[in-house]
């Protein structure tokens, strides 16, 4: 049994190392000077210089950030409304809501994306950054709802009732009592909603206007060429750094939530 545990432990560490390996190699090759082969021939920072001077990368990054921010605000507000309504009111069909909210998470994104594109064109809405935002909100409401609702289920409505007894009306009780209690849950929901939007490729790719690029679309344009464009590796280093920051923030927020 002891031996078995040791094997299991060694196996776990090996798998963890293998999960990280491709990313480490990606970063190592961002310092490679040869563009023709996947062999490391010499150290250079040239890929980084060409990345810094590439305004299209920064333009895409900016687009990812601002669309992600709008998507986050809209979907978190809608999710809070929904979670509050479900937790505080009785109405017919209430039990169905959680299942309905899971559908956008389960449906494969490529189908969501193509149906939305067909719909937008049929009703005559021209593709723009806002159609991308509309599409992201449609799945992000669900991600945000799941998190906010979990938080709302975990606290006692007596706090609100106490505020009501002391003379606060519902809106005041909501803004002064419910929202502050929910704050960590809302922060977690906002971060997840933002990351889902920031990282989204498929839905953006289908519903974007020509020429509008977010960071994942830019990455696709480079990666879908044959060969090894090494300034993409330099970009990868940057993206990895940002992701680690997000992972850190998320970890901090979740510690406060649970």
């Amino acid at each position: 049994m002891k031996l078995f545990d040791k094997i299991l432990k060694a196996y776990t560490y090996t798998v963890l190392a293998l999960i990280y390996l491709p990313i480490v190699i990606l970063i190592i090759f961002s310092f490679n000077e040869s563009r023709s082969k996947v062999v490391f021939t010499g150290f250079t920072l040239e890929n980084y210089y060409s990345l810094i001077g590439n305004y299209r990368v920064w333009d895409s990054f900016y687009n990812s950030i601002w669309t992600g921010a709008v998507v986050t605000v809209v979907s978190v507000v809608l999710a809070i409304l929904m979670a509050y309504g479900v937790s505080r009111y009785e109405f017919s069909g209430k039990t169905l809501i959680d299942s309905i909210m899971l559908i956008p998470i389960i449906i494969p994104e490529i189908v969501e994306a193509l149906t939305l594109l067909v719909f937008l064109v049929i009703i005559g809405i021209e593709l723009s950054p806002y159609t991308v935002i509309i599409g992201h909100v449609a799945f992000d409401i669900s991600f945000a709802y799941v998190v906010v609702k979990a938080r709302m289920a975990g606290y006692d409505p007596q706090f609100e009732e106490a505020a009501r007894t002391l003379g606060a009306d519902e809106i005041r009780a909501f803004t002064k009592v419910t929202l502050p209690i929910l704050a960590p849950g809302i922060a977690a929901a906002a971060l997840i909603a933002f990351l889902e939007s920031y990282d989204d490729f498929i839905k953006t790719f289908f519903t974007r206007p020509p020429g509008f690029m977010t960071l994942p679309v830019y990455i696709w344009n480079m990666a879908s060429r044959r060969g090894f464009p090494l300034d993409l590796n330099a970009l990868a280093t940057f993206v990895v750094a940002i992701s680690l920051i997000f992972a850190y923030i998320r970890n901090r927020i979740e510690r406060r939530v649970y």
Binding site: I25, F201, W220, A223, V239, S243, F246
Partner: peptide
């Protein structure tokens, strides 16, 4: 690692 963009992981 799964926080890093999916396309980059595939490219890697």
């Amino acid at each position: 690692p799964f926080w890093i963009n999916f396309l980059l992981r595939v490219y890697a």
